[in-house]
C-alpha cells in the first residue's frame, strides 16, 4: 500500500470554565477540522469538555529529555524561592 500516514494531533480539553486546557491524548486526522471532530468523538463522550484545542504534534517544541538536568536542576538548589526558607516567629501570626 502506498498510502501516506495520517498526521498525529495532540488534544487539549478544558473541562469547565475556570480550569485550564489539559492534555487529554492524541489522535490522527488529515486536517484541523477533522481533528476537532475526532477529538469530540474520542475524548468528550461524557461531557468531559467545554472547549477543545488540537495541535499538530509536529508543531510542538519540547525540551530535550537528555538535557533534563541542565534544564531543571538549577532550581533544585534555590530553596530561597520557597516561603518556608524564611523564619518568622510564631507570634507574628499567619503570614
Amino acid at each position: 500500500m502506498t498510502e501516506k500516514n495520517t498526521p498525529l494531533w495532540e488534544v487539549f480539553i478544558r473541562a469547565r470554565n475556570g480550569l485550564s486546557h489539559k492534555h487529554a491524548g492524541s489522535l490522527h486526522a488529515v486536517d484541523a477540522e477533522m481533528a476537532l471532530q475526532a477529538a469530540r468523538d474520542v475524548y468528550t463522550r461524557r461531557g468531559e469538555g467545554q472547549s477543545v484545542w488540537v495541535v499538530r504534534s509536529s508543531d510542538i517544541v519540547a525540551s530535550d529529555p537528555t538535557e533534563k538536568e541542565v534544564m531543571f536542576e538549577p532550581t533544585g538548589s534555590k530553596i530561597y524561592r520557597h516561603p518556608t526558607f524564611y523564619d518568622i516567629p510564631d507570634d507574628v501570626g499567619h503570614m
Binding site: 500500500m1 498510502e3 501516506k4 495520517t6 488529515v30 486536517d31 477533522m34
Partner: peptide, 12 residues
C-alpha cells in the same frame, strides 16, 4: 474505506 482516507488526505 481506503478511498475515504485517500480522499481526505488529498483534500487536506
Amino acid at each position: 474505506n481506503a478511498w475515504v482516507r485517500e480522499a481526505a488526505l488529498a483534500y487536506a
